[in-house]
C-alpha cells in the first residue's frame, strides 16, 4: 500500500477530474431545482496546486471567505469542503431568497449551511452512484475567516500525502439575474479511501 497520492499520475488525475465534473454537474442541477431557475455551469476546473497557491485563488490568505465543511462517512471516510468568497456567498443566498441590501447576517449563514448541505450532498451522491460505494455526509460546520486559515484544513489533510492540494473550481451562473457564484470544492478522502475510491473505478494507485 502506498501512503502517497501521486497527483502527477495523469490517469488518477483524469479520474478525479471526471468525478469533479459529474459531482459539480449534479450540484448545479440541485441548485437549479432548489431555486427553480435555470443555472448555467462552466466546466469545472480541476487543479493541483502548491500550498501557497491555494489561498491566492480566493483573493489571498487574509481575504475573508466562507467555508462549509462536512465529514464523509460510509465505505469511504474523509471530508468535503465547499468554499466561497463573500460576494459569491451573498449571491448564492440571494438566488434562493432575493432580498434588498443583503448582508452577511445570521440568516445568510444558516441559509448557506443548508445550501452547502444540498450541493455537497448532490456531489457525494453522484460519487456514490458512480462508484457503487455507500457515502454520506455529516451535518455542516461553517466558518467565516481568513482564506489561509480556512484552507489550512484541506491543506493539512492533503499535506499528509504530499505537497499539493487538489481543488475543483465551479462557477454557477443564474441565467437571468447574471449573478455569478464561484465555488470551490475540496474532496479529501482519507488515504486508504483514495485506494477504495479509485479501485472501485478500476484504477490502481
Amino acid at each position: 500500500m502506498s501512503d502517497q497520492l501521486n497527483l502527477n499520475n495523469s490517469i488518477v488525475l483524469d479520474v478525479l477530474r471526471e468525478i469533479g465534473n459529474i459531482g459539480a454537474g449534479n450540484a448545479a442541477t440541485s441548485l437549479a431545482k432548489m431555486i427553480d431557475k435555470k443555472v448555467d455551469m462552466k466546466v469545472p476546473i480541476v487543479n493541483v496546486l502548491e500550498f501557497d497557491e491555494v489561498p491566492e485563488m480566493l483573493g489571498g490568505p487574509e481575504n475573508v471567505v466562507c467555508g462549509i465543511f462536512f465529514k464523509i462517512e460510509g465505505d469511504i471516510t474523509g471530508s468535503i469542503m465547499f468554499v466561497l468568497d463573500q460576494s459569491s456567498a451573498i449571491n448564492l443566498v440571494d438566488l434562493l431568497m432575493p432580498r434588498d441590501n443583503a448582508e452577511f447576517d445570521e440568516f445568510t449563514i444558516s441559509a448557506l449551511k443548508e445550501i452547502g448541505n444540498i450541493l455537497s450532498g448532490a456531489y457525494v451522491s453522484s460519487l456514490s452512484g458512480l462508484t457503487n460505494l455507500k457515502i454520506k455526509i455529516s451535518i455542516p460546520a461553517l466558518a467565516i475567516d481568513m482564506a489561509g486559515a480556512i484552507l489550512s484544513v484541506p491543506a493539512i489533510e492533503f499535506g499528509q500525502m504530499g505537497d499539493s492540494v487538489l481543488i475543483i473550481q465551479n462557477e454557477f451562473i443564474e441565467t437571468n439575474a447574471s449573478k455569478k457564484v464561484d465555488g470551490y470544492f475540496f474532496l479529501i478522502p482519507d488515504m486508504e479511501s483514495y485506494e477504495v475510491l479509485l479501485g472501485s473505478l478500476g484504477v490502481t494507485l
Binding site: 500550498f51 501557497d52 489561498p55 489571498g60 490568505p61 487574509e62 475567516d145 481568513m146 482564506a147 489561509g148 486559515a149 480556512i150 484552507l151 489550512s152 484544513v153 491543506a155 493539512i156 499535506g159 505537497d163
Partner: peptide, 21 residues
C-alpha cells in the same frame, strides 16, 4: 505555508492566515 525563513535586524517576518497550522 510549510515554509521557514530566518531574518537579520532590522527585518521582520510575517505569515498570513494561520489556521490549524
Amino acid at each position: 505555508m510549510a515554509d521557514l525563513k530566518v531574518a537579520d535586524f532590522p527585518n521582520a517576518l510575517t505569515t498570513l492566515g494561520l489556521g490549524s497550522c
